[in-house]
Design a protein around this nucleic acid. Structure first.
Lengths: 201, 201
DNA sequence: TGTGGCTCTTTACAAATGTTAAGAAATGTG
DNA sequence: CACATTTCTTAACATTTGTAAAGAGCCACA
């Protein structure tokens, strides 16, 4: 479902982009005409396993989860909330069919554009190229930290790290089964760990 | 230990860089004057935990491992071989003290340059900015796949995936205790898994 | 507001990995 | 080439997590 564009939404995205690198009005105008609003109901798909992704979204309201499927079993690996960009980044980069699915957790409103527009802007404007570089660097740092957490800490320690982190949105808004998956354990195991912690506290 | 520069080494690096994006001679000359050769003996450090990193290396000969330390316990998370770039990427990007250590596994010869040179080139030449972007994207893709492997597969399955992968250099050249760490398990556990596999084969 | 479905917890049991320690094997170094 | 060191294997035991199943609690939606 596509809606007309909204000025304050567009400003929110521009502000987000400019947290990575400054943009002149002219540079911004390279992207703005390609933006459109989209609203998805609960449990609808923003990207689907097996399909080549070319859509980037900026979450205005709502949330999504990212999961990989194996033998019909879903492994949730990431969550997206307001004021963040969401995409099957790997499929956009490689132009290969995606391995993951992006599903809304609630009714979600997004500002969207096609990844190939950004790719074209990277060739036309150094500023957009720098933005794309900074985004990639930001993603790489996040992934490295997350991988290290898995290599260095036990499931119970990872849950404690999540509690002490500033990712409270995850704990507040995400069903526990998905948090368990995100932390690399089963829902049963997370329930046990929570029980242990509650008793000792 | 620094040695005079060597033409074929420099060509090897240029070839590697150009696998990410094409460069004119003029663009390449932005980097070349800043290259120098370095040779490290076995078990010497290329980057050290707690120190801010600013060095990028291109491995000409030899290999390194990357590890994080926790309570005196080392967790090896990555290996670097010939014809690959090595750096404490996060420390270079964030300009914060590094969390990891890079140690040679054998006598290693590298071509090195300072990261801030590359950063400057990103501002001067769009081609170098694109190179930095492609590198970041390449790293992000690798990290995402590695994280997913940990979230979706058991230690034994991860060992099987490593065997079936094209990362044979790891299995051939890396001590098993480090491979175990890389796979997120103890050396004892890896030895057991190998034993099980050998019996069933 | 009631009802069906989804989510979380709890239990018992199975399976895998972690821990510790000792010995065998391999490797690096003088 | 031989010794010292490091690495790998094996074993026994402890701990943790996974699995399956049942019930309680909560939420969404009609």
């Amino acid at each position: 479902m596509l809606l007309p564009r909204n000025t304050s939404s567009i400003l929110a995205l521009r502000t987000h982009v400019q947290q990575f690198t400054p943009l002149t009005d002219a540079e911004w105008q390279g992207l703005e005409p390609h933006l459109r609003e989209m609203t998805l109901g609960r449990k609808q798909l923003f990207a689907e396993e097996g399909k080549r992704a070319n859509l980037v979204g900026f979450v205005l309201q709502g949330s999504l989860r990212q999961f990989y499927t194996r033998d019909g079993d879903e492994k949730t690996t990431y969550f997206y909330f307001e004021n963040n960009l969401v995409a099957d980044y790997i499929s956009c980069l490689t132009k290969q069919p995606g391995l993951l699915t992006l599903e809304t957790l609630e009714e979600t409103r997004l500002l969207v554009f096609n990844y190939d527009v950004l790719e074209r802007l990277c060739g036309e404007f150094p500023a957009w190229n720098t933005f794309a570089r900074k985004i990639a660097e930001y993603i790489a740092i996040g992934l490295e930290m997350r991988l290290v957490e898995h290599l260095m800490y036990s499931p119970e320690e990872r849950y404690n790290l999540l509690i002490k982190s500033n990712k409270t949105r995850i704990l507040e808004r995400i069903p526990q089964q998905y948090i368990a998956s995100y932390l690399g354990m089963t829902p049963v195991s997370l329930s046990r760990i929570r029980n242990r912690l509650a008793r000792s506290a």
